[in-house]
Amino acid sequence: MAIMINKPGMLTSLQDLGRYTYQQYGVIVSGSMDPFAHTAANLLVGNSEGEATLEVTLTGPKLTFGIDTFIAICGADLTPSLNEKAIENWRTISVRKGDVLEFGNCKWGCRAYIAVAGGYDTGRVMGSKSTYLRAGMGGYQGRALKEGDTLPVNSDGNGFHPTSFNWFISHEPRAMYLDMNTIRAVKGRHFDLFTKESQTAFFNEKFKISTQSDRMGYRAEGTELKLQQQKEILSEPVLFGTVQVPSEGKPIILMADRQTTGGYPKIAQVAYVDLPKLAQAKPGDSIVFQEITEEEAQISYIIQKIELDYLKAGIRLKNRE
């Protein structure tokens, strides 16, 4: 009951929604860079939101299924094919033992999520299946997938038996991907410490995502952001989407594999609902930060969660018809 890895792809690792409750010990959260695509993929195969998916980066893997099951691929369009026949993202797909899943060019986005009905059977470390690459723990043997790996799949499945395959997640719930360049954000705790010019530049000018960007954080290039005067900031927690500015003036947007704490001034906090856009952005892409209030950010978060609950209920209903 497994999936054979014929080719690993650029960086393919198991991720769920993160390893919480251990940040006080310095253990990072990890988890999917695009929690929306991750969640959608899980819901399409009848899994709970928090089940692990395979996070695929730019160049996809080649996999052979050792079982009959259902899968879904959401997020980046890396032109997936099953037995050399093109398949689509955002759908439930039936696969048979011996089927081969491959990926081609990247047509849109950066990260795709492959969910399998019942989930990957790797066990949890500290409550999570997410791979913590630097500490070599969690996920599949604490590392990214390699050629020749055999990834176990929960043999009991999850009792999911879809009755129709002629539908997909419509564009409406994933409308945030339409405007990839506008990243909504709220002022950070240290926003007022920056010069007036830097404050204006941050919310008006374009920033380019640098090649020094990975699961830990994205560096952004643009107008140099400066403090009015140098100030010692005591280390304190940082979050997914915290934008901090080291002394050389280039902002860093912290992503899924961020450290738990940081000592650089925080200029902004990216709205949770816009993190999927960043997860799908590539080095060289331009972004503009648009200011929203903290209350707006929280309400958007709540609305997105409610929409995902509707989607979950909708998928259940569809498969009962």
């Binding site: 409750t21 006080q24 005591l234 280390s235 304190e236 927690p237 929280q298 709540i302 969660k305």
Partner: peptide, 28 residues
């Protein structure tokens, strides 16, 4: 309640906003 992250002079408390979602009041 999800977790706490204590630091030098701050304590961060993480919570699930869905448990505090309310039609009129701020979850925060």
């Amino acid at each position: 309640f999800i977790e706490t992250v204590p630091a030098y002079n701050t304590l961060t408390v993480l919570y699930d906003p869905m448990k505090f979602a309310h039609p009129e009041k701020s979850a925060f």
